[in-house]
């Protein structure tokens, strides 16, 4: 046995503690809690940009909900003394053509758009992952039924359905609106996930899990989805931006967020024509949207690197093998 232990003496990284004692936890040393969750968290926290992204998102939320409390204005109120005035002490971000306070409106829009963007992205990517992986992993009738559903959703004009459902949605509030948005964003990703699942399913580590009696759903969540984490994270990151913009598009046609209520999308849309003459109308909303999406993508990158053991030194390994 000693002979074999010696075999391992010069592994990359080098040993950090001698093997001693008897209790498993002691012998495992620092590795005792080395489950994937903790390792991922540790690696994520090591990535400064990603942590900064989380902080920025939290700050945006705090700003969106807390800042209006310090402003004398309401998002519906109008100031008859200031039409289209530039930023000043009275109106921090200036006012609109009818005297609405841009700061308060932007914060109001931020509240909605942040939640809609983040949630719609998570819901649509999650749905895509589950449906795609289930179709690919189970195959046979599950595959046919789910892919039939995907095809159906792809040919249905999502815009039309949302339009038809909008009176009903209006009563239910933004949460249902977000769900509907997500419901029309997942199909293409689901197809890609299915394709990747088909190849992963035949990999030996998936077979190994099956042969040790692991249940199909646990295999999907433990082995299959983590191995396509990069795809899913990139997809979710892109979806945040597109959900915010899709909401704008719908609002434009009178569905979704309706005046006098505002969202970042509607603010950008309304302010963009005056970008050169009165930039304060859309710049705050636009910059906040960019900041938000940027923060999300940093978090996404950090999460991807934390989940992928090759992330930091992948390139080096490749060359060595070549």
């Amino acid at each position: 046995m000693n002979r074999m232990a010696a075999d391992t003496a010069n592994t990359p990284g080098g040993p950090d503690a001698p093997a001693t004692a008897t209790a498993g936890a002691v012998r495992l040393g620092a590795a005792a809690g080395a489950t994937r969750g903790r390792l991922t968290l540790r690696r994520f926290l090591r990535n400064r940009l990603a942590v900064a992204g989380v902080v920025v998102i939290v700050l945006l939320y705090v700003l969106a909900f807390a800042a209006p409390l310090f402003s004398p204005w309401d998002f519906t109120s109008q100031d008859p003394d200031a039409y289209l005035s530039p930023p000043s002490a009275r109106h921090w971000f200036g006012t609109t053509q009818i005297g609405g306070d841009v700061f308060v409106q932007t914060m109001r829009g931020l509240q909605k758009s942040l939640s809609i963007g983040l949630l719609a992205a998570v819901v649509s990517t999650g749905l895509a992952a589950v449906v795609g992986a289930a179709a690919g992993y189970f195959g046979r009738w599950a595959d046919r039924a789910l892919m039939w559903l995907v095809d159906l959703m792809l040919v249905l004009p999502g815009f039309l359905i949302l339009a038809i459902m909008s009176p009903w949605l209006r009563e239910r509030g933004w949460f249902f609106f977000m769900l509907m948005l997500a419901a029309f964003m997942w199909m293409i990703t689901a197809r890609i996930v299915r394709g990747m699942t088909l190849t992963l399913r035949e990999r030996e580590f998936v077979k190994a899990a099956r042969f040790m009696g692991e249940s199909p759903w646990r295999i999907i969540f433990r082995h299959i989805l983590p191995n396509m984490a990069s795809l899913l994270i990139v997809d979710a990151t892109i979806n945040v931006g597109s959900a915010v913009l899709a909401e704008t598009g719908l609002s434009y046609f009178g569905f979704g967020v309706q005046p006098p209520d505002v969202s970042l999308g509607t603010l950008i849309r309304d302010g963009a024509p005056f970008a050169l003459t009165s930039p304060w109308l859309f710049l705050p909303a636009g910059l906040l949207l960019i900041l938000g999406v940027l923060a999300v993508s940093f978090v996404g990158d950090g999460l991807r690197d934390a989940l992928d053991p090759h992330a930091s030194h992948g390139r080096f390994k490749e060359k060595k093998n070549a």
Partner: peptide
């Protein structure tokens, strides 16, 4: 607790060091 003890035992049984538990297969 049982799993922890067993993983350490198994790693020693096959001639690896228990501290290796925290590494990824690629290493």
């Amino acid at each position: 607790p049982h799993i922890r003890r067993r993983v350490a035992d198994l790693l020693e049984l096959v001639g690896l060091r228990p501290e290796f538990a925290a590494r990824y297969p690629a290493e």
